[in-house]
Computed example of a mutant assay.
Amino acid sequence: MRPPSSSSSSLSSSAMPAPGGGGGGGGRMSAFTMRAVARMSRARWFIFLRRVYQYQNGPRSDLGSNPFNSPGWLALELGVIVAQMVLTTAVVATSPAELPAWPLRLWVAAYNVGNVLSLPLLYWRHRHSSAAAGGRGDALSGDLEMHGANDALRDRSYLMNKARAFLELFFAMWFVMGNVWVFDARLGSFSRAPRLYALCISLLAWNAVVYSLPFLLFLLLCCFVPMVGYALGYNMNSASVGRGASDEQLAALPRWRFKEPADVPRDREHDDQECCICLAQYREKEEVRQLPCTHVFHLKCVDRWLRIISSCPLCKQELK
């Protein structure tokens, strides 16, 4: 008697190991990597970074579309500003005997003044982003807020945007001045004011990261992500734009329990005995699902896939 295909495959795999450590381990590793990448592409931080990159490189219409005006980001900015103010005040108060060669206390004090001036701008962004988000439900008020028909609101927005631009210019110029004062090797006075120098270096390093954020986003989303997607054959960008299938679409797709090839529906190929998502053979009474393109997969595997992107993993045909 000829043994079942599953038994013969398991016997052959155990008797003859695949080169390079076995194909089963490689398949499991590939499936694990694919799941990890899929989870990362659906993570909130990755979707937020994509929104930031699209906002910085696309048309900026209204405040509600700005990801930097989201409640989570505004709360993060507020926490960073308050932490900087507390840290700078504590370091300056605990180092009265330090005598730096450059007026670092003046630099720190002006930096703190900029942080204080950032607070009303932060509150204004919160108020106007909330108003824009709430006005989307009302067509008239949404049109007034999004297109600037309200003259008073437009004037205030113009003034606040100008103030924000001047504040950003001040921070940029003060950043350059701080680099000149802190990294001046001619005087070498780090030993005379170690706490103040350490504080200034920390603030300069933080601002350097903030200023290089657009370049880091470019490297991540335009270089690293396409390379990973090409290596794995998985489009991370398409998985993060909300193209997943709904519960109603999944419920409308046919499903059944796997049986022997003789009992399989006629429109299914008889040599299609394994799921191309998990690379495992179908077993008796396992639930499978058929897509409109007639391709069949494990129920759990294809449902997870379709919730990420609503197209067939093989032929890329979209669900209707």
Rank of each mutant, 00 (worst) to 15 (best):
M29V: 07
L87D: 08
H298K: 02
C293S: 06
K300C: 01
R156H: 12
D151T: 12
F48Q: 05
E286H: 01
P100D: 06
G72W: 09
R156A: 06
R156T: 09
M29K: 03
Y53C: 00
D62K: 05
A83Y: 11
L167C: 08
P194S: 08
L87C: 12
L213S: 09
H270G: 01
A245Y: 14
G114Q: 09
P254E: 01
R28V: 12
L104Y: 08
A185K: 11
A172P: 11
G114A: 01
A252Q: 08
S238F: 06
T294E: 05
M85K: 00
S95W: 02
E77L: 11
L119Q: 01
V180N: 00
C275V: 12
C200E: 13
L106P: 00
C312Q: 05
V91P: 08
R127I: 13
A131M: 12
L78K: 07
F32T: 11
A97W: 12
S5E: 15
V302H: 06
I47C: 08
N57R: 07
I308T: 11
F68S: 06
Y111A: 02
E145K: 07
E260G: 04
G20E: 12
V302E: 05
M236A: 15
A280Q: 15
I47S: 02
L232K: 01
R268I: 15
S157R: 09
L213E: 14
C200V: 10
A38C: 00
R192C: 13
A208P: 05
F175L: 09
F297G: 04
A83C: 10
A185C: 11
R136S: 09
A185R: 15
L167Q: 07
R255Y: 10
L117E: 04
I201E: 14
K300W: 13
K285A: 14
M177Y: 10
V302I: 15
R192G: 12
L217Y: 11
F48A: 04
H295Q: 03
S246E: 04
C312P: 02
P261K: 02
A152Q: 15
R39D: 03
A208V: 14
F218S: 04
A252W: 03
R304A: 14
I309M: 01
C301H: 03
W305V: 06
T94Y: 05
G135T: 04
P59Q: 11
S10V: 15
F166R: 08
I309S: 05
D143I: 09
C223P: 00
G114F: 08
S202C: 13
Q281V: 10
E260T: 10
V241P: 00
R268Q: 12
V80K: 11
H147N: 15
H270P: 08
A36N: 06
L217K: 04
V225D: 04
F48S: 03
A251S: 06
R42D: 10
G26A: 13
